[in-house]
Design a protein around this nucleic acid. Structure first.
Length: 355
DNA sequence: CATCCGTGGAG
DNA sequence: TCTCCAAGGAT
């Protein structure tokens, strides 16, 4: 049993994180056993495929701006997207807002307390449902994330590659999940995976479960879990059309609601071409005389590289007509902080020395 | 089951 | 410079 060794270690070495009950809180209010479900949910959504270090600042900002799920539900989507800007995977922010509305408007502001009910919420999948059920409600749910997969793969020396071995891992994870303190156990597994049982150069010599770890015994820990080879990322190329006005700022627009950077603010771009050079966009070309900036903006998304050539022009008249033609809005630099500008768009603006 | 969906940091 | 990858979910 992992829990036997792991929970005592966790009691001594648990990281203090903003979404956890602090030792001080536990001492002051021993009757409070679990962290606020809203905070657990918010942190879990943010932590999906995102590091603790990156999440901390965003978490604090969200909790300050919207202390309760009702506050978040009342907010405009665009404000939420703006606060989320830079954190990536923007469907998470859209689902976060949608989920807040469901809880506030359909569930009386109360989070479901079962894994099954949590799983129905937008943006809440198998991992997050189990994590909330365990951490916020003390349910003995089987929490399996990348950390748990890695620890389990090593502990049992599972040499079959991911993702094929996932279901087998889940069975082992189930066997190890304790009835009591399942939330602490889950967080302990994740702490262990994040700090000791790391992907590269794991700290087996200081690991609390080293004596019962099969991979450690056979010296193959670092090689596990094995993974299917990744596909090569193609490169897409496009022109960005940065329209500037002395008086009104830059002409920006909202991206389509779904898909890549859905709902986020963008510098207008031509087609993103995967084969060969970028294409000029006739619709934008006719609006003004464009100057090509030196250099190129490079950005890598999850599944492709993106290379942008930036074109700029300065407009002094017909500003509203042009905005209408581009379906965009003028915004001054001073307003950028309030916009939902993803990192790639900030790179473009910075390249044009306009941020 | 495979693909789409961001970003910043580590090595 | 480049690869890997971090508390995954939706389709």
């Amino acid at each position: 049993m992992i829990a036997e060794e792991l929970l005592p270690w966790y009691d001594r070495h648990a990281r203090e994180l903003p979404w956890r009950l602090s030792p001080r809180q536990k001492r002051a209010n021993p009757e409070i056993l679990f962290a606020d479900p809203y905070r657990v949910w918010l942190s879990e959504i943010m932590l999906q495929q995102t590091t603790v270090a990156t999440v901390k600042g965003y978490y604090e900002k969200f909790l300050t701006s919207w202390p309760t799920v009702q506050d978040l539900a009342k907010e405009e989507l665009d404000s939420v997207l703006s606060a989320w800007a830079g954190l990536g995977y923007y469907a998470r922010a859209r689902n976060l807002h949608k989920c807040a509305k469901v809880i506030a408007e359909e569930l009386g502001g109360v989070f479901p307390d079962t894994e099954e009910a949590l799983l129905k919420l937008p943006g809440v999948g198998p991992y997050t449902a189990a994590a909330i059920a365990a951490i916020a409600f003390g349910r003995s749910a089987v929490v399996v994330d990348g950390n748990v997969e890695r620890v389990i793969a090593r502990y049992y020396a599972l040499e079959d590659p991911l993702p094929g071995v996932k279901s087998e891992m889940k069975k082992f994870a189930q066997k190890e999940t304790p009835i009591d303190r399942a939330g602490d156990y889950a967080q302990a597994m994740m702490d262990l995976g994040a700090t000791i049982c790391t992907p590269r150069s794991p700290g087996c010599v200081i690991c609390p479960i080293q004596v019962v770890c099969l991979a450690r015994k056979s010296g193959i820990a670092e090689a596990l879990p094995k993974k299917a080879p990744k596909k090569e990322k193609p490169t897409r190329r496009a022109y960005a059309y940065l329209l500037l006005s002395e008086k009104r700022g830059a002409l920006l627009r909202r991206r389509p609601e779904k898909g890549l950077l859905g709902g986020m603010t963008e510098v207008p771009t031509g087609n993103w071409i995967e084969q060969g050079d970028a294409e000029r966009n006739p619709e934008f070309e006719q609006l003004a005389q464009w100057a090509k900036l030196d250099g190129i903006v490079k950005h890598t998304f999850t599944h492709f590289h993106f290379e942008i050539t930036v074109l700029t022009t300065k407009l002094s008249q017909d500003l509203d007509v042009v905005a209408e033609a581009v379906q965009g809005k003028w915004a001054h630099k001073s307003e950028f902080a309030g916009l939902a500008l993803p990192t790639v768009m900030k790179k473009i603006l910075r390249h044009a020395d306009y941020m």
